[in-house]
Design a binder for these strands. Sequence first.
RNA 1: GCCGGUGUAGCUCAGCUGGUAGAGCAGCUGAUUUGUAAUCAGCUGGUCGGCGGUUCGAAUCCGUCCAUCGGCUCCA
Length: 648
Amino acid sequence: MINITLPDNSVRQYPEGITGMDIAKSISEGLARNVLAVKVNEEVWDATRPIPMDSRVTLFTWDSEEGKHAMWHSSAHLMAEAIEQLYPGAKFGIGPAIENGFYYDIDFGERSVSSEDFPKIEAKMLELARAKQTFIRKEVHKAEAIEYFSKKGDEYKVELLNDLEDGTITFYETGTFTDLCRGPHLPDTSPIKAVKVLAIAGAYWRGDETRKQLTRVYGITFPKQKELTEYMELLEEAKKRDHRKLGKELELFTFSAKVGLGLPLWLPKGAMLRERLEMFLKKVQKKAGYQPVICPHIGNVELYKTSGHYQKYGESSFRPITTPVPGEEFFLKPMNCPHHCEIYKYKPRSYKDLPIRLAEFGTVYRYEQSGELHGLTRVRGFTQDDAHIFCTPEQVKDEFKGVIDIVMLIFKALDFKDFVTQISLRDQTKKEKYIGSDENWDKAEKAIIEVAQERGLNYVIVPGEAAFYGPKMDFMVKDAIGRKWQLGTIQVDYNLPDRFELEYIGNDNQKHRPVMIHRAPFGSMERFVAVLIEHTAGKFPLWLTPEQVIILPISEKYQKYAEKVSSLLNNSDIRAQIDDRNEKTGKKIRDAEMKKIPFMLIVGEKEELEESVSVRKHGEGDLGGQTLAAFVNFIQEEVNRELGDLSA
RNA sequence: GCCGGUGUAGCUCAGCUGGUAGAGCAGCUGAUUUGUAAUCAGCUGGUCGGCGGUUCGAAUCCGUCCAUCGGCUCCA
């Protein structure tokens, strides 16, 4: 007998070799029907795999991440089986579960597959799923495994096998399909009730640009048809929040082929919104001891030779700008730091001056590959809310803290709750890759983690993701369809101070090298606004939105009064416009609702007599009448509340 | 840059197996003077993404380029 400890810490005795499924059965039939996988100590196993020793066991159903994972991973195998039957000779790469569903990388050979094939694949998958095929786990020897896939002609699996150690290799068999796989899998295919092949895309084998591109087939499955329907509706809803669609509808920005790819044009309303964001941050930064600076948009090639960017990125940038002087070259600036280094350098600095914080909304240009361009989130010309902090190694921690506070302040003012903090550190096994002293790296890495803890951030540490010049902390926010985008970033840099030979005189009267911190709380104005649009679905906070109020006179007769209301509001710093079109009120309301203007003021005879307005709130409807003065007061208070102590 | 999808009026879209384009909204003009999500009528507007080809004839078929979308790779 072995002891099985369940999540509630109760211990039950079972015969050795009991399976997760049997344990579930001993608890309840219902649970047994729904169990998809089981965690044995720290590993997730098949529910049908015998448990040989005393263990801590958690049973997973569809409601858990692990259950979904097993379901989707198994669905990937099911799809592979279906595809193998439909397209004999297809070769298989890898087929994992992902956050929403699964994919399989497949080499279809000469055949080209398109979305027209999806229904066929779905039907086959359902047919196979209904057959209730079991997933059979087999431990195999490496030689045997290689032989199997060599014979089958699946060179991708053979390549994967070559990198694996003998003794750790398992196969899973479902119906006619056998796959190299670590598992875990469902007991059988029967829980897979609803199937959708979502998309196909090219994907390089093993993520390597120089290798063959396979066809990646994405899919998702559910235990109930209803859940699939709901998921598809969710995707539809997400599309409505796409910033590219809303940006057009709300007239925030546009692109023009004539201006150039990836070069956004901010329309008046978008510019208004962006300006408010900038004002907000400028105010915050002023309080936090930043000094604004302004730099030109180009820099001499020598600047980038000094910074090292020329050597690293020169070939993949916009071409240099030449001048009538032979040999003279300028580059559009791809980042602001070299310019800021030169500002630091223009006079000798004392330790008493540090930290020096130089801030600039700096527009930069990077020649991103055409396939990377994506609305406002990935562009070729964009404005960073950049600043560079020059400080002593001892000051790094406090400065980091200060920057995090700014990022949090911004996220709070914009109601960003769902973000992930990523801390990128060195790969400890390859320290030679990184510039800067071991001591300083240790100090900075430790400081970053401590600060994250002190500030109560929900962070993940990713070793090996640091830039060669220093560790960093990034803030990632998801867009409408769940893609993660990096917004704010804080990076420590030991490289540029060296390359630019930056110095300060310490209290020992000796020269020292400062540490540089790059930071951009928004990241870039373009990307930030894009993610903000998707987060708010275009319903921006009142303080930020381009148009706060629209005045809707019932008829021409009340135009004078509407103008009076408008000028009073605008004099009170409330952004208001009049809809003086010759339309009925219902129409004006409809249009204002669609433009997502927070407040509509309907004015007619009654309001004119009373010096009042009839207030309607976007998405909520009629709020009734108010005096003009009361409305002004109301809006101002609302804005103050949103901005907290920054409203002043 | 790579793989696949898409490209018809300012916007959203229709146009069957080839016979030289259509709706709604927007815009303009006029009527209407309007009370909480679309007043009515008329009008304007497109070398059907560009260029080549097949054909008596191409929005429709083929090629190519461009843009765009979904991924991959990349992101100082």
